[in-house]
Design a binder for these strands. Structure first.
Lengths: 251, 251
DNA sequence: CCGACTTTGTGCATGCGTTCACAAGCGGTA
DNA sequence: TACCGCTTGTGAACGCATGCACAAAGTCGG
C-alpha cells in the first residue's frame, strides 16, 4: 500500500458511514454526470436560484430526468417530493461526495503547447485544483515561471511531488516519455493520473488513470462523418426525419 | 479471396455494401477502441512487424483479448486462424472503417491557450486531420498566423467553413461563447464538433458532438482520491453486504 | 497425408447502465 | 383536517457491453 500520507486526519468534511457505503456503489458513469450536475447547479446558485426540479436540472445537464434522479439517489435522498431539490444543499453534498472539499494539488508534466495551456488555466476550471508544480526535461525551461509557477526539471518529480503532496498528476509529454513520467509520479505517491499522451499506461492497481486522447476523439468523429456521408450517398428512399432542419442555408 | 475491387476506382474510397451494413452495427465503445488498436498497429508496422495475434495486440491496447476479437469481428473477419492478423491489412481496413482515407478538414474556434495548443499540434495527432481554419473574436489576433494558419474573425465562420469544406469543428472558446459558436458551425454545415468548453451544447439530431471536459475529468479523479483516502482511513469496516444499507436516520 | 497445435470467431451467460412507470411523500388549499 | 396536484425515489424490465469457453479453421512437423 502506498498510502503512507502523513495526515490520517481528514481536516475537512469527513464522510459519514452512510455516505461512505454509497460512495463505493456509485457507478462510474454516474460520477461523471454528477460533475456535470454540479456545474449546472453552481451556475444556478450564482443566478440566485434556490430550488430546482429534476426535470429542469436534467435539461440543463442534457440527460434524462429519470437518470438524474437515480444518479442523485446514489448519493442519498436530498430532494423534497412535490418541490424538488434545494440547490445549495445539493451543491455542497455533491462537492462532498466528489471530494472537492479538500484541495487537490496538481502537477503538470511536459510544458509544451498543451502543458502551457494547462498551466495557464490557473487553478483549473471549477477551482479546487491548484496547480502546484510543473516539470519538463528541457533545461531551458527550468526556472521560468509559467502561469505563475516555476518549472522544475523532470528529475525532481519524485521529491517535489512528495514535498507538495501532489495528489493528481497530469501527463502532457510526447508519447515516448509518458510511461517513464508515469512511473516516477507513481513512485512519488501520486495515485491519480490524467494522461494526455496517446499511450496506454501501465500502472499498479492502486493508481487511477484517466486518459484524454485527442486523436481518438477525432477518429470517432471521423467515423461518424464517414457513416453519415455514406448514408447520404445511399438514401434510396426518404432521409430519416431530417427534413425539418434546413441548417445548411445561411440566414 | 482475392480482394475484389469494383470497376469504378474513385477518389473517395467507397465502402462496399457489406462494410456499410457493419458500420451501422458497430457499438460506440468499440469504435473508440478501434482507434486505439489502429495506433498500436501503426506502431508495429513502423517497427516492421507484419503479423500479430489478438493476444499481443490486446496487451498493447490494454484490453481483454476476447473483446478485441469481438471488436474486430464487427468490421469483418480479416484474421487467419492459427496465425493471427496481418498488420498491414488490419491497418488499412480499420482506416477505411473509421473514414480516415479521406481527409477531414478541421476548424479551431477560440485561439486562447488551448486553441493555440491545438493549432500548433499541426495536422493533429495521427495525421489525416489538417487544420485549415482558425477563428477568434479578438480583432488583434485576426490575420496573425498560428501554426502556419492565419486567424479569421469569428464572424467569418460560416463562409470560410463552407468554402474550405470543414467537416470537424473544434470549440475552444470560453463557456459563454460556446453555444453561439456551435450554432454558427452547424449553419455552415459542420456535422461533427469536438467541444472543449464546459457547456452542454444544444444541436440538431444530425450533428455529432463529443466533449472533452477537463473539469469533469479532474473531478472524477478527485472522487477516486477521496474514496481511496476514505478506504485507507478505515479499513476496519466489515463489508458484509446486507443489513447495513437500510435507511440511516439523520442524526 | 495426417495429426497435433495454435488462434480466430462467436454463442451464451453475466453484469452494468438506462429507461419506464408508479407508489410514496410533501406542500398547498379549502 | 382532508383532499389534490406535483415531484421524488425506486422496483422492474430492457438493452448493451463484457468475458468466458469452445468449436471451427488454419499452420506446421513428421
Amino acid at each position: 500500500m502506498a498510502s503512507q500520507r502523513g495526515e490520517g486526519e481528514t481536516t475537512t468534511t469527513p464522510l459519514e458511514p452512510a455516505d461512505r457505503e454509497r460512495a463505493r456503489a456509485i457507478p462510474e458513469a454516474a460520477v461523471a454526470r454528477l460533475a456535470v450536475y454540479l456545474r449546472a447547479l453552481s451556475g444556478m446558485a450564482d443566478q440566485g436560484v434556490t430550488a430546482v426540479s429534476s426535470e429542469e436540472l436534467s435539461q440543463a445537464a442534457g440527460v434524462n430526468a429519470a437518470k438524474l434522479r437515480k444518479d442523485l439517489s446514489y448519493i442519498g435522498s436530498y430532494g423534497t417530493r412535490g418541490v424538488g431539490y434545494d440547490v445549495e444543499v445539493l451543491v455542497s453534498h455533491i462537492e462532498r461526495i466528489l471530494g472537492l472539499t479538500r484541495n487537490h494539488s496538481v502537477a503538470v508534466v511536459g510544458i509544451g503547447n498543451l502543458g502551457h495551456a494547462l498551466a495557464n488555466y490557473g487553478g483549473f476550471p471549477g477551482r479546487g485544483f491548484p496547480v502546484t508544480a510543473l516539470f519538463d526535461v528541457d533545461a531551458d525551461l527550468v526556472g521560468i515561471p509559467v502561469g505563475g509557477i516555476p518549472v522544475n526539471h523532470i528529475d525532481e518529480i519524485t521529491s517535489v511531488c512528495m514535498e507538495r503532496e501532489v495528489s493528481i498528476g497530469v501527463i502532457a509529454t510526447p508519447p515516448p516519455a509518458a510511461q517513464s513520467v508515469c512511473d516516477r509520479l507513481v513512485s512519488a505517491g501520486v495515485q491519480c493520473i490524467l494522461n494526455f499522451a496517446p499511450v496506454v499506461l501501465q500502472v499498479p492497481d492502486n493508481v487511477e488513470v484517466r486518459k484524454v486522447d485527442l486523436a481518438v476523439e477525432m477518429q470517432i468523429l471521423s467515423f461518424h462523418v464517414a457513416r453519415r456521408a455514406d448514408e447520404a450517398a445511399n438514401v434510396s428512399v426518404g432521409n430519416n426525419g431530417l427534413g425539418v432542419d434546413g441548417m445548411v442555408i445561411r440566414p
